[in-house]
Simulated scan of single mutants.
Amino acid sequence: MSETMGSLCDKLTIVKLKQWHTQDAGKLESLSKQEQQLKAEIDEFIYDAVTGRIPLDRLTFEANKVYSGVGNEVREISGSLGEVFSELAEINCKLWHEQEKVYEFEKVPVSEKDQVVKQLAILNLERNQCIDKINSHFYSFIVRSKHNTPC
């Protein structure tokens, strides 16, 4: 997948979650380096987009998830770029905790296993929707800035 603002934001939220959930000094050092690299990459991506070094058609890369909508209803993600980024961080937090259940799936009561799998699927769909919305917002911002129209 090509890097987009949404994919970079997603990676950064995951690094922050990993930092939050570990106390291992070696891992924390590595994660700190990853965090710094991602922040620099985001800054560079913004600069390159604003200056036209990234073509407009490369600012978006929709996930185009193919799935049955029946039984997999996903709420519509909306709001400003900052609001959607915040939503992405929250969804990734929820995903982290659902995924933790899968690592010891044998401990999940049989009556709850289907719900865990369903929740992972729904959260992943919402995560992809957030990434796409961030990309769309960022694309619109760049287009407006090129035409000097107010946000």
Score class of each variant (00 low, 15 high):
residue 1 M to Y: 13
residue 3 E to S: 13
residue 3 E to I: 12
residue 7 S to P: 11
residue 11 K to Q: 15
residue 11 K to Y: 09
residue 11 K to C: 11
residue 18 K to P: 13
residue 19 Q to A: 07
residue 20 W to Q: 12
residue 23 Q to K: 14
residue 25 A to E: 12
residue 27 K to R: 15
residue 27 K to D: 14
residue 29 E to D: 11
residue 30 S to D: 13
residue 32 S to E: 06
residue 34 Q to C: 01
residue 34 Q to A: 13
residue 35 E to R: 06
residue 39 K to V: 09
residue 42 I to D: 04
residue 43 D to Y: 07
residue 44 E to Q: 02
residue 45 F to A: 05
residue 48 D to H: 10
residue 48 D to T: 08
residue 48 D to G: 03
residue 49 A to R: 00
residue 50 V to Q: 06
residue 51 T to R: 14
residue 53 R to W: 12
residue 55 P to F: 07
residue 57 D to Q: 13
residue 60 T to Q: 06
residue 60 T to M: 06
residue 61 F to C: 05
residue 61 F to T: 03
residue 61 F to Y: 13
residue 62 E to K: 09
residue 63 A to D: 10
residue 63 A to V: 10
residue 65 K to P: 09
residue 66 V to S: 01
residue 68 S to Q: 13
residue 69 G to T: 10
residue 70 V to R: 05
residue 70 V to N: 03
residue 73 E to P: 02
residue 75 R to L: 04
residue 80 S to Y: 15
residue 80 S to L: 09
residue 81 L to Y: 00
residue 81 L to Q: 00
residue 81 L to S: 05
residue 82 G to V: 15
residue 83 E to H: 04
residue 84 V to W: 02
residue 85 F to E: 08
residue 86 S to R: 10
residue 86 S to C: 11
residue 86 S to F: 03
residue 91 I to H: 01
residue 91 I to V: 10
residue 92 N to Y: 02
residue 92 N to C: 06
residue 93 C to I: 05
residue 93 C to N: 12
residue 94 K to Q: 15
residue 95 L to F: 07
residue 96 W to L: 00
residue 97 H to P: 07
residue 97 H to C: 02
residue 98 E to Y: 14
residue 98 E to I: 10
residue 101 K to S: 02
residue 103 Y to F: 14
residue 105 F to K: 12
residue 105 F to M: 08
residue 109 P to N: 08
residue 109 P to H: 06
residue 110 V to Y: 09
residue 112 E to Q: 06
residue 114 D to K: 08
residue 117 V to F: 04
residue 120 L to K: 02
residue 123 L to M: 03
residue 124 N to I: 00
residue 126 E to R: 04
residue 129 Q to T: 09
residue 138 F to P: 01
residue 141 F to L: 07
residue 141 F to D: 02
residue 144 R to G: 01
residue 147 H to D: 10
residue 148 N to V: 11
residue 149 T to P: 09
residue 150 P to D: 13
residue 151 C to I: 15
residue 151 C to N: 10
